[in-house]
């Protein structure tokens, strides 16, 4: 990513959401992006995914400039995004069926993707029969089936309860350990960011700039119990220190905005 700016025009004023974001994620790495709420994390991800155009700057993935949504930019949305009229298998097949290859190969491929997210045995279940965590895993399987160059996750566990969140988080960790798929992961949860990623990027309050980049040194495979170690606590404290000042700023600004 090079010098990403994004501004919105509202009726009253122009809001600058992103002010010169400039960074590169290594291929095969798991990078988390955290920042105070409303700072533009999701906007940044939407720009990388081609869902929105940056006002200035350029995003390059694997040497090619991003101009719009594309199969190579896998997107896991925050909201529930599975099709309720398709089974789990049907949802994953959606990523494959307009590609070449025999129907049987596509089904085999979709099945193995469901296995990867731990949903073997639920191929023929409809979303109405699944929990929130299962639906989000189907969405992840659908994204992985498209074989993207980078997977973009926009607070994918935001709508899940704490326990489900941990479970699905571990599942994503296993998937990364197995595939070494490049992942950009937006979250507001510091623990989650440290546990999952190799690198955490901290954004400032709006307009968003990069405040800090922290490398997470823990080796893989990782367990959730990692969160109890001193090193983990140190990194969390450091991130929290950087973030809390910004969070206050964002909070005060929001309050001021609400009071107007």
């Amino acid at each position: 990513m090079r010098g990403i700016f994004k501004s919105f025009r509202t009726k009253a004023r122009t809001v600058i959401a992103l002010a010169g974001i400039d960074f590169t994620a290594a291929k095969g790495s798991f990078v988390s992006i955290i920042g105070p709420s409303g700072c533009g994390k999701s906007t940044l991800l939407a720009c990388v995914g081609g869902m929105e155009r940056p006002t200035a700057g350029q995003i390059t993935v694997d040497g090619r400039v991003v101009t719009g949504p594309s199969r190579r930019l896998g997107y896991v949305f925050q909201e529930e995004s599975v099709f309720p009229w398709r089974t789990a298998l049907g949802n994953v097949l959606f990523a494959l069926e307009d590609q070449g290859g025999s129907k049987n190969d596509q089904i085999d491929n979709a099945r193995s993707m469901l296995r990867l997210v731990g949903l073997q045995g639920f191929e023929n279940a409809y979303p109405s029969e699944m929990s929130g965590g299962m639906k989000q895993r189907v969405a992840i399987a659908r994204v992985l089936a498209a074989e993207p160059e980078v997977v973009l996750m926009d607070e994918p566990f935001g709508a899940l309860d704490q326990q489900t969140r941990l479970m699905v988080g571990e599942q994503v960790l296993r998937i990364w350990e197995e595939t070494h798929q490049t992942i950009l992961f937006v979250t507001h949860d510091i623990q989650e960011a440290i546990l999952l990623s190799n690198e955490v990027v901290v954004l400032s309050a709006r307009p968003a700039r990069i405040l800090e980049r922290v490398t997470v040194p823990f080796p893989h495979p990782r367990e959730a119990s990692l969160a109890g170690t001193h090193e983990f606590a140190d990194i969390a404290a450091r991130l929290w220190h950087t973030l809390s000042g910004e969070a206050k700023k964002a909070f005060i600004e929001n309050e001021a905005g609400a009071a107007q």
Binding site: G49, G50, M51, G68, P69, S70, R71, L73, G74, Y75, F77, E79, E80, S81, F83, F94, A95, D98, R142, A146
Partner: peptide
């Protein structure tokens, strides 16, 4: 969001 899924899978 469902429409966006279609867009991101190049429909």
């Amino acid at each position: 969001v469902l429409i966006n899924v279609g867009k991101s899978l190049e429909r």
